[in-house]
C-alpha cells in the first residue's frame, strides 16, 4: 500500500519535472516578444542610420545580438544551471570560451598580418591571372 502510494507520488513528481523542462507557453511568448524587439532595434539602427558613427552602431548591434542569444538560450533552449546536473552549462561555457578565442584571436592576428602586407590597387587586382 505504502509502496504503491510512493510510486504514484514518484510518477507525479516525474511528470511535473518533465513539464518544467519544456517550458510553458508563457515562456515561449516572453521569449518571442523579447527576440522580436531585440531583432527590430538593430535593423532599425542600420536601415535608418541612427548613429552617425558606424563604429558606435556596430558595438550597439553586437550588444543587442549577445542579449538576444541569451534570451534564446533561456526561453527557447531552456538552459539553466540545473539541467543534466550542470553538464549542459559546463559544455556551453567551454564552447563559448573556444568561440571567443577563435574569433578574437583570428581577427586580432590577421589584422596585424594584414598591416604588414604590400598594398595592392584595384587595377593590379583586375590584371591578376
Amino acid at each position: 500500500m505504502s509502496a504503491q502510494a510512493e510510486s504514484e507520488h514518484h510518477d507525479a513528481d516525474e511528470h511535473t519535472h518533465s513539464g518544467s523542462r519544456h517550458g510553458t507557453f508563457k515562456d515561449y511568448l516572453i521569449g518571442f516578444v523579447l527576440a522580436a524587439v531585440l531583432t527590430a532595434i538593430p535593423f532599425w539602427i542600420v536601415i535608418y542610420d541612427v548613429f552617425r558613427n558606424p563604429k558606435v552602431g556596430a558595438v550597439v548591434i553586437l550588444i543587442f545580438a549577445f542579449v538576444q542569444i541569451v534570451v534564446h538560450m533561456v526561453y527557447f533552449l531552456h538552459m539553466n544551471s540545473k539541467s543534466e546536473g550542470g553538464w549542459t552549462v559546463l559544455a556551453l561555457i567551454f564552447t563559448a570560451i573556444l568561440v571567443v578565442i577563435t574569433l578574437a584571436g583570428s581577427l586580432w592576428v590577421m589584422s596585424h598580418l594584414d598591416a604588414n602586407m604590400m598594398p595592392m590597387s584595384p587595377e593590379h587586382m583586375r590584371n591578376m591571372p
Partner: peptide, 14 residues
C-alpha cells in the same frame, strides 16, 4: 542571430 548581425547588418554598416 550571429549571421544577420555579423554578416548583414555590420556588413552594410561598415
Amino acid at each position: 542571430i550571429g549571421v544577420f548581425t555579423f554578416v548583414y547588418l555590420m556588413g552594410v554598416l561598415l
